[in-house]
């Protein structure tokens, strides 16, 4: 049993609570210990680095890194946005001694920033061998065609996150395939969903997310799989807004990576919080166990 520090971030405690639940279920099934960071704070999300300028976008995640530094060797941040901010802070602290000084001053002690930061795909790939997962599958997802949707910030900028191929990430695929699901070629796996523009200029999100869904359907995909709460929101929650704006009739389910694996392990959609999604109809594909 390996223990990891766990940084849930704001989303996983609110709008993406089902992500947290499903992650914990999968982790438990494979004996992965998750120690939630004590007194963690906001990762800075999009506004801190982009709108408030200065160093807030580094200082906020730096504090979380600092806390993690007192715990296990690695910290996992399932939300792609949180992951990106933590990696960014680490990247900047690593190369900028003066920033390290200032951060230390703000923390009243030398900043601990070298804890390994993992995203959820990385963690599960490390702890679960595809063959093991395949053996543990209770509900084989054969026949289900999953579109792996990585979004932007998990793999970009590549020199900062250094994770997977930024143009063609493929690290979700092995575990998903081990559940029996197919992962057909999906050209929009890193296309932007519109991100936080949903608040400022909704049309942008509707247009961007519409195209992702459209191409997914063109590729014969039954459900999208993501690791980002914001992407999830734009693609699932706003699907009805897309339909209203474009006169489409989309009902494409969007799952968290951990939910897809949870389904394969035999958990019910309700246990995994899939019922809280707006689009949870898998069509011909039945969710029966066995």
């Amino acid at each position: 049993m390996t223990d990891y520090s766990y940084f849930p971030g704001c989303s996983l405690t609110s709008s993406a609570a089902e992500y947290d639940v499903s992650f914990r279920l999968v982790a438990a099934a494979f004996g992965i210990g998750l120690d939630e960071l004590a007194d963690w704070n906001c990762c800075g999300a999009s506004p801190a680095p982009h709108h408030w300028g200065g160093e807030l976008g580094i200082l906020l995640p730096a504090r979380n890194l600092h806390i993690a530094g007192a715990g296990h060797p690695s910290v996992v941040a399932p939300c792609a946005g949180c992951y990106n901010r933590l990696k960014y802070a680490q990247f900047e602290l690593e190369r900028n001694p003066e920033l390290r000084e200032r951060t230390g001053a703000a923390l009243d002690e030398a900043v601990r920033y070298q804890t390994e930061v993992l995203n959820v795909i990385q963690l599960l790939n490390r702890e679960i061998a595809p063959d093991d997962l395949s053996e543990r599958v209770q509900r084989r997802l054969s026949g289900l065609r999953l579109g792996t949707y990585y979004g932007c910030v998990l793999v970009r900028p590549p020199e900062v996150v250094r994770y997977d191929d930024p143009n063609n990430p493929v690290k979700m695929e092995p575990l998903l395939n081990a559940t029996g699901a197919a992962t057909p070629h999906f050209p929009f796996k890193t296309e932007c969903c519109g991100s936080y523009m949903g608040l400022a200029k909704k049309e942008i999100v509707l247009q961007a997310s519409k195209r992702i869904i459209e191409v997914a359907l063109e590729c014969g995909i039954d459900a999208l799989v993501t690791v980002c709460p914001l992407c999830h929101q734009n693609l699932d929650l706003r699907q009805s807004q897309i339909n209203a704006a474009y006169g489409t009739d989309y009902h494409l389910p969007v799952l968290y990576f951990t939910q897809a694996i949870g389904l394969a392990l035999g958990h019910s959609p309700a246990e995994l919080g899939i019922n809280t999604h707006k689009n949870a109809d898998f069509g011909n594909w039945t969710l029966d166990v066995g």
Binding site: P187, F188, E191, E214, V215, E218, C219
Partner: peptide
């Protein structure tokens, strides 16, 4: 021939 100055980011199928 229509000349467009720029790179292509992506090619994907539609209908």
């Amino acid at each position: 021939a229509i000349y467009i100055r720029g790179r292509v980011g992506k090619i994907y199928p539609r209908g």
